[in-house]
Each structure stands twice: as structure tokens, then as C-alpha cells.
Amino acid sequence: MSEPTNPFTPVTGKKPTCMEMLQFILDGQATPEQKEYFRSHMDHCMPCFKSYHLDMAIKELVQTKCCGGEAPTELVRTIKSQIAQNIS
């Protein structure tokens, strides 16, 4: 089986490193082809496999624990009335 072509565009013009690929995935910038490529890359790259799962777990934790919930209702009210006053 031949290696599929790497869909990651290297920033430097060199072959993209594991770290560059992983960051692209983590940062949510990867295309479906890049994600697919990285998935099969992880099958034979243990460091990527480990880092990916840890980094994604942290990212998910940030998403669930740091989203802050809703803005205070009184803030929304203040903003709305401030704008109402500025429109005659």
C-alpha cells in the first residue's frame, strides 16, 4: 500500500512535522482530508496518538468549564435601553 499524499501544506516549504499537523487539528483549522490523513497517521505514530488524545481532552475541558454561561440579564437590559435612547 502506498502512502497517501499528505494534504498538509507545510508553512516552511519542508515536509510538515508531526507537531505542525497536530496543531492544525487542535486549532480547528484542518480540512476533512487533513483530518482523515492525520487519523491514519496516528495508527503508526505513537507520540501523535498520545498527544492528540491528551490535547483534545484538555480542549474539551476548556469548552465545558470555561464557557462562562449567560451574560447577566441586567447587563443586557442596560445595553438595550442605552441603544433605545440613542434612536429617536
Binding site: C66, C67, G68, E70, A71, L75, V76, I79, I83, I87
Partner: peptide
Amino acid sequence: REIFDHEFLPHINSMYN
């Protein structure tokens, strides 16, 4: 008013965070 209500205000929770 429309822009403010429909394009700006929906982001208030993200903005507050």
C-alpha cells in the same frame, strides 16, 4: 435597530465571557 438586535446582541454571552 435590526442589525443591533439580530447581528450584535446574539453574541452577548460570548462577549461577556
